[in-house]
Amino acid sequence: MDELTLLRNTRDDSREPSPKALTAGRAALLGSIAADGATTAPAPHRKHQRWMPRLTWAAGVAAAAIMGVLIAGNVTLSAQSAYASDMLRTAATRTIHYADLVAGSEQYLLSHTHARWGICDSTGCKPNDQILDVYMPADPEAEWTLYRDWGDMPGVLTGESIETTRAVDGRFYGPESSWVNVDYADIPLDGAAAYEWLDAQYNGGSASRDEDNFVRMADILRSGLVPAPQRAALLDALSRIPGVAATDNVANLDGVTGVAIGRNEPLRAGERQEIIIDPNTGLVIGERAMSGATLFGWGPNEEISLTAIETTVVDTAP
């Protein structure tokens, strides 16, 4: 027997009320309605008074929840920035004591970059691997050499997939295009002073001043050729850029792990630019770009580009 059948069987339909009982019950009901109508006219006002505090309480809870999310987000960002600052300043201290590789007479300091950058056309975007080898001579007045394999994208200037270019001071693509962008001797050796030095050169580029400062510091560091004292100062300067955060155990394109230093740019839908450093030497061992939103086939927080950078001493150049 199911529950509904059992419930129905418990009802006793054989016992009906008497006419006298029905009359008495009807009279009592009508009397109750009349009495209630005479005494409850203000009820709507009382209900309104009770409802308004509930609305106020509900709005307060919602506001508190939103405020809690904002505070939690700010606390998280502050904690990330504090960790990045501490890590960068520790790396800067270690870098000062690191003995850089030095090219001897007729040798070269080689900065080898293996890059995976996207190339896009009307059909969409795809990854394209490139190799960039920059040979910096021991004699700064001698010619530098660039060997570049453009992969599936012919060279912008040469139209060839493979190019070898020579130029004094690494100005491979013209007088204003030095590979290192700066005279290392101009970089102040104090972190705060290095930050002020770079910030003073801002001329309105990039989506924001902070992004431009980060990108220009990263451009100098990623050359792989910055001497340890100046490298240490730039790492300290990076720690002073608002929004900079650190991510441990990030692998470069060749699988070597380090600490990724980067920042999300709100004016680029949260796109994140990073340099990956060896915290013991302060050397940049790669770069990474992460999407902030769905764009050109990339979903949120996906790798747009990734590189690996290695610095060594070699005896010859192409």
Rank of each mutant, 00 (worst) to 15 (best):
156 V>K: 13
138 A>N: 06
126 K>I: 06
156 V>S: 11
146 L>D: 11
139 D>R: 00
155 G>T: 11
140 P>V: 06
124 G>K: 00
145 T>I: 09
153 M>N: 14
157 L>V: 06
144 W>N: 02
124 G>F: 00
156 V>A: 09
148 R>P: 05
133 D>Y: 03
153 M>D: 15
152 D>K: 10
152 D>P: 06
162 I>H: 08
157 L>F: 11
159 G>W: 14
164 T>V: 15
142 A>G: 05
152 D>V: 14
147 Y>K: 09
129 D>T: 15
159 G>D: 13
126 K>D: 13
137 P>A: 01
164 T>D: 04
156 V>I: 14
123 T>I: 03
122 S>T: 12
122 S>E: 07
138 A>M: 07
155 G>M: 07
144 W>M: 11
156 V>H: 13
133 D>A: 02
152 D>H: 04
153 M>S: 05
148 R>C: 06
137 P>I: 01
163 E>H: 02
136 M>S: 09
137 P>T: 01
160 E>S: 15
148 R>T: 11
129 D>M: 07
143 E>L: 12
138 A>V: 02
141 E>V: 04
155 G>L: 10
139 D>T: 03
130 Q>K: 08
131 I>P: 08
156 V>Q: 11
129 D>Y: 09
126 K>T: 12
162 I>W: 13
158 T>A: 12
155 G>D: 08
135 Y>R: 00
156 V>Y: 15
133 D>I: 05
152 D>C: 03
164 T>S: 04
140 P>A: 05
127 P>K: 00
136 M>I: 05
145 T>N: 01
135 Y>A: 00
139 D>Q: 01
144 W>L: 00
139 D>K: 02
132 L>V: 14
150 W>H: 15
130 Q>V: 10
125 C>E: 08
160 E>W: 06
132 L>D: 11
147 Y>C: 03
160 E>L: 15
140 P>N: 05
151 G>S: 06
128 N>S: 07
146 L>S: 03
124 G>N: 02
141 E>T: 12
145 T>L: 05
147 Y>G: 01
144 W>V: 06
122 S>P: 01
150 W>E: 12
135 Y>H: 06
122 S>G: 04
125 C>M: 00
149 D>K: 04
142 A>M: 03
131 I>F: 10
134 V>W: 04
123 T>S: 08
164 T>F: 00
151 G>Y: 07
129 D>S: 14
125 C>S: 10
139 D>E: 09
